[in-house]
Amino acid sequence: MLLRLRLLEFRCHERLEFFPTPGRNHLVGQNGRGKTSILEAAWFLSRLRSFRTGQPREMARWPGKGFAIEADCAATAGGPAEHLIVRWNDGARETFLDGNKIAMPEFWGRLPTVLLSAEDTVLIRGPAARRQAWLDALESLAVPAHLVAVQRYNAVLKQRNAWLREWAGGRRGDRALGEVLDAQLVATGLAVTAGRVRAAEAAGRLAEPLLEAFFGGAAVCRFAYRPGFDPAGGEEAARTLLREAAPSEQRQGRTLAGPHRDEWIIQWKGKSVGRFGSEGEQRLSALLLRLIEAARVREARGRWPLFLLDDALTPLDPERKLTLEQLLPADAQILQAGTVMPDGGAVWEIGPGSCLLPAIP
């Protein structure tokens, strides 16, 4: 639960402090006042990345070169609070827990959040890396060590690609180094694959009641995970795959087998939603994945995440909008950005100069 959020030099906010209520919190105000930026800050504090940009420097208030986000959060209302800080300054990121500097894997997800946004269809129709990252996040919300496995795999992959580029450039790479990198790629890759298998199985299980609520049955939707390394084949199968790919890899200068080649496909009535689905099907699929994330947090941690709603309801038809409202847990904390004064919940109006005050209906 988010008890306090403080932004310093973040987006359009020079300084902003916010004390949300335990239930639903509506952020209202004119366009350009920084409502979505508050959601973005909470998301960045949780996932250490933005849902709006891949460049953290764009989140620094112009013309500055850095920003800070602070928060007090607790597992339950009235429970012991943790003080979280993330600072970004001119390319360097630091994370702190209760005043002590900690590493990214220990910080990631301490404030669990789930984002519901109308822009989330990129998760469905975007490149495979988007869905790989979603599976990794789903597993890391329950098993934080999976995030470390992904980091290790990516580090080995980067080294191996550099080694392969030597071959592609006409120089013969050190074969002994190549054998070491192959062994490391297999070991770390199979660890990542095992986590994604667990995440894919959890997604299928947690999706069933959601599909029942949205469509009256789970038969309409199926998930298909296609790993780059066969988890059943183990190390020998992975090594064989690398040996077979070696000539092509040395010509192209990049690794052609492993979890970075995974695909996770969402199918509606037998067709890929990403390739053949309508805009509406892709939008509903994205919402489904985010609600699966929330259910995963509830299952693993015994509490709901902080829900961040950024224009998620607007594109839905009235029936689906009502269904989504009913699926949002009554005992969850929600931050919702909009321009219209809503019915129910605490309403906070953002005025000029990042002034955030309770609104009077």
Rank of each mutant, 00 (worst) to 15 (best):
Ala213Asn: 04
Phe229Leu: 14
Ser248Thr: 13
Pro247Asp: 10
Ala219Gly: 03
Gln250Asn: 04
Ala246Val: 10
Ala237Leu: 08
Tyr225Phe: 15
Ala219Pro: 00
Arg226Ser: 07
Arg239Phe: 08
Glu235Pro: 11
Glu249Met: 14
Ala218Ser: 14
Ala257His: 09
Phe215Pro: 00
Ala213Lys: 11
Ala238Arg: 09
Gly216Ser: 09
Glu212Arg: 07
Phe215Met: 00
His260Met: 02
Leu242Glu: 06
Tyr225Asn: 03
Gly234Trp: 06
Ala218Gln: 06
Ala257Asp: 03
Pro259Arg: 06
Gly216Phe: 07
Gly234Asn: 06
Glu212His: 04
Ala213Phe: 00
Ala224Trp: 01
Pro247Glu: 11
Ala257Leu: 05
Leu256Met: 13
Leu241Thr: 14
Ala257Phe: 02
Glu249Lys: 13
Gln252Tyr: 11
Ala218Gly: 02
Gly217His: 09
Glu212Asp: 09
Pro259Phe: 07
Pro231Glu: 05
Ser248Arg: 15
Phe215Thr: 00
Glu235Val: 14
Arg239Asp: 03
Thr240Asp: 14
Arg251Lys: 14
Tyr225Trp: 02
Leu242Gln: 10
Ala218Arg: 14
Arg222Cys: 05
Thr240Phe: 07
Gln250Cys: 05
Ala218Trp: 01
Gly228Ile: 02
Glu244Thr: 12
Thr255Leu: 15
Ala238Lys: 09
Arg254Asn: 05
Cys221Asn: 01
Ala245Thr: 04
Ala257Trp: 03
Phe214Leu: 15
Thr255Pro: 08
Tyr225Gln: 06
Gln250Lys: 14
Gln250Met: 13
Gln252Lys: 13
Asp230His: 03
Ala224Asp: 10
Arg239Trp: 04
Gly216Glu: 05
Gly233Ala: 11
Gly258Leu: 03
Ala218Ile: 00
Pro227Trp: 09
Leu241Ser: 15
Pro247His: 08
Arg261Glu: 07
Phe215Arg: 01
Phe214Gly: 02
Tyr225Gly: 02
Ala245Ile: 03
Ser248Asn: 07
Arg254Trp: 08
Leu256Gly: 13
Phe214Ile: 07
Gly258Gln: 08
Arg251Phe: 04
Gly216Tyr: 08
Gly253Ile: 12
Glu236Asp: 15
Ala224Ile: 05
Ala238His: 10
Glu249Tyr: 13
His260Tyr: 03
Ala232Phe: 02
Thr255Trp: 11
Gly253Ser: 12
Asp230Val: 02
Arg261Lys: 15
Arg251Ala: 12
Glu244His: 11
Glu236His: 04
Val220His: 11
Arg226Thr: 06
Glu235Trp: 04
Pro227Phe: 09
Ala237Phe: 06
